[in-house]
Design a protein around this nucleic acid. Sequence first.
DNA 1: GCGAGATTGTGAACGGTTTCACAAATCACG
DNA 2: CGTGATTTGTGAAACCGTTCACAATCTCGC
Lengths: 224, 224
Amino acid sequence: MTETRVPIPTLERLAIYLRVLLDAHEAGIQTLSSQEIEQHSGISAAQFRKDLSYFGEFGKPGVGYSVPGLIQCIERILRLDEEQPILLVGAGNIGSALVGYPNFQAHRLRIAAVFDNNFVKIGRPFGDLVIQDIARIKEVNAEIGARLGIIAVPAHAAQEVADLLVEAGVTGILNFAPTILRVPKHVHVRNVSFLQELAVLSYHATEDALCVNGQATRGGKDGV
Amino acid sequence: MTETRVPIPTLERLAIYLRVLLDAHEAGIQTLSSQEIEQHSGISAAQFRKDLSYFGEFGKPGVGYSVPGLIQCIERILRLDEEQPILLVGAGNIGSALVGYPNFQAHRLRIAAVFDNNFVKIGRPFGDLVIQDIARIKEVNAEIGARLGIIAVPAHAAQEVADLLVEAGVTGILNFAPTILRVPKHVHVRNVSFLQELAVLSYHATEDALCVNGQATRGGKDGV
DNA sequence: GCGAGATTGTGAACGGTTTCACAAATCACG
DNA sequence: CGTGATTTGTGAAACCGTTCACAATCTCGC
Ligand SMILES: NC(=O)c1ccc[n+]([C@@H]2O[C@H](COP(=O)([O-])OP(=O)(O)OC[C@H]3O[C@@H](n4cnc5c(N)ncnc54)[C@H](O)[C@@H]3O)[C@@H](O)[C@H]2O)c1
Ligand SMILES: NC(=O)c1ccc[n+]([C@@H]2O[C@H](COP(=O)([O-])OP(=O)(O)OC[C@H]3O[C@@H](n4cnc5c(N)ncnc54)[C@H](O)[C@@H]3O)[C@@H](O)[C@H]2O)c1
């Protein structure tokens, strides 16, 4: 366990392990081996052990891992051991699905405030919250102190909103808009793109890797 | 351009290039160099060229790439050159956001039918569609012939729905439920997990890689 | 037509992640 | 207490994707 940087895929899998562990805990299971984790997560036992090794030693040889113990450890690693407030910007379709999503709570993620710039929407209730003016976001987050933000506004407004989030003190942004965001180095962005996912599936769904060559290069005069 | 398998990251980026190209096309730009693509996509010029090289040669040395030409090529590669019908299962929050999403159209992705098992919902309008009984999914898809499906039902029902989708002839599944799905080898699954994304951000948002060791292993008698 | 300048396509080097394989640790049980 | 069965943690190897660097290709202007 040297002081290496943790691979992002490892962090992503940590969240999966956590889900498996929470399920097992619910089912009253006390101990799980890496082998059993593999069964439930689809991630290889060796991968699981290697992933954990970035953070320390959590299992007992010959036995496995204490379910409640490991839950606590992974939660601490991911900073999900205490409530994590989140700023949501964009009270539209996606925002609507998010505010009502109960599973966030299990991970102590809480949407603490919702913002929009539509005067018709501002002041309206939205889930348990009231939609606030995006102009007040910095002021409001001075109270809340959220480090995470979600962008659920149209693409043309996303960069502007990102800037406001950063200015309000956010250092992690989940972006639903189909744009690449320019942010300072200390801010992390993760993009969610259903279109991208569907495009990959679309490619695979038709299983013949036809080569599409000879069309563009020899397109003649129309191109360039 | 040997007969190598295309890396998944390459396919994901293809969708990003396509977006950039469509934007450029809209702006009336006729030609783009890999250098310029890098500007707009945040993906390195070398990466872009390497990605395309899996499929053929699409650019002209000294000039760049024909925007409309490359759009056509990438669309063909991703099978987005003709309309791609999709089956949506689960007429809830997520499903609701999806049916109303206009950007799908630009990629010729069309949600062709919506299914649910809630008798109260079946028969109701949902976007432009009418919610249908999940029991009829195979029958309905015999007409539609969709190869793509979206699962937007609670986790406990996801596997069951996946089985139905596969039986109905779907070979690509976009899964919003937090579960790993067991599917035949010829079926591709991509999971969308907001929680996972937020967990990764949560880790990075607090920038001190404290080591959480010595808690689980020496937990004493409580564990195992 | 030709030389200067620009840009592509790609083999090779590189770097990072996953897989492998095994020594060390723990437990069960006689 | 010792033996055998089990499972962890981790260095090393294998694998895969990204970056590099440059020959080949094309355009433009003279
Ligand atoms: N709906 C989907 O299924 C879906 C799928 C994939 C991606 N997306 C993306 O997610 C984003 C949101 O989608 P949606 O369907 O919820 O859109 P929406 O139009 O339903 O909601 C967008 C909201 O953002 C608000 N807004 C606009 N500009 C703003 C600004 N400058 N500051 C604050 N608020 C502002 C609008 O008032 C509106 O309430 C879009 O970028 C969309 O492309 C949506
Ligand atoms: N809402 C969110 O923000 C969010 C975020 C991340 C993940 N998810 C996941 O996405 C999925 C859908 O979430 P949601 O908020 O839309 O849920 P929802 O409860 O609003 O909708 C689920 C729908 O599925 C239907 N359904 C249930 N069992 C079914 C079955 N066997 N066959 C057909 N339909 C069935 C229900 O009748 C309901 O209409 C869930 O797995 C959820 O965990 C949701």
